[in-house]
């Protein structure tokens, strides 16, 4: 890995951590737990387009570990990791096999929805209660909406990121 690439990956990790921090400052109050913007997903999305799957994965893992250490708890680590990994897997598969069929927005929506599916799965395993799955429809709708938002941001940001590369 070249120095330039290491610096770029570190920069993206730093940006993702700041975005997670900003997200924590936004107060959210919903009837359903687990709804959030997922701002840090902008970085995962950009990384998947700009770098290899391995490098993007590295950014994601370091980001999840560091944000949990800095502002989270073991609980939040467990289920944000589960959601994050599932969302990453889906987005990576979409980019690998259907890159030309979907735009950034579509891929981000798929990632957002699967993030919430992973989160609910992890939560229901953790508390050993499957009634929590009842929250899924609302979480999926929120995943679609935030996915569109994150995808649009990613789309505009990528124009500028290309110049950096």
């Amino acid at each position: 890995m070249s120095n330039r690439k290491i610096a770029m990956l570190a920069l993206l990790v730093a940006q993702a951590i700041i975005l997670s921090f900003i997200e924590r400052l936004i107060p959210t109050s919903f009837a359903v737990p687990g709804i959030k913007l997922g701002l840090a997903n902008i970085i995962t999305l950009i990384a998947l387009y700009m770098f290899s799957v391995r490098e993007a994965f590295l950014i994601l893992v370091i980001r999840i570990l560091l944000t949990s250490l800095l502002f989270g708890s073991i609980t939040s680590l467990l289920y944000s990791a589960f959601g994050g990994l599932l969302s990453f897997l889906i987005m990576a598969l979409f980019i690998k096999y259907a890159r030309n069929k979907f735009s950034v927005v579509g891929i981000s929506v798929a990632g957002g929805v699967f993030h919430n599916i992973g989160q609910i799965a992890a939560a229901s395993i953790m508390v050993q209660n499957f009634k929590i799955v009842f929250y899924l429809p609302v979480l999926m709708i929120s995943g679609v909406i935030t996915g569109i938002f994150i995808g649009l941001i990613g789309k505009y940001l990528m124009k500028y990121m290309d110049r950096v590369r």
């Binding site: 259907a98 069929k101 979907f102 735009s103 927005v105 579509g106 929506v109 798929a110 929805v113 899924l136 429809p137 609302v138 999926m140 709708i141 995943g143 679609v144 569109i148």
Partner: peptide, 16 residues
Amino acid sequence: MKKNDFILIATLLICS
């Protein structure tokens, strides 16, 4: 955005 994006979004929204 592409046509498939809209199909994906609509399908997910209708299902949920």
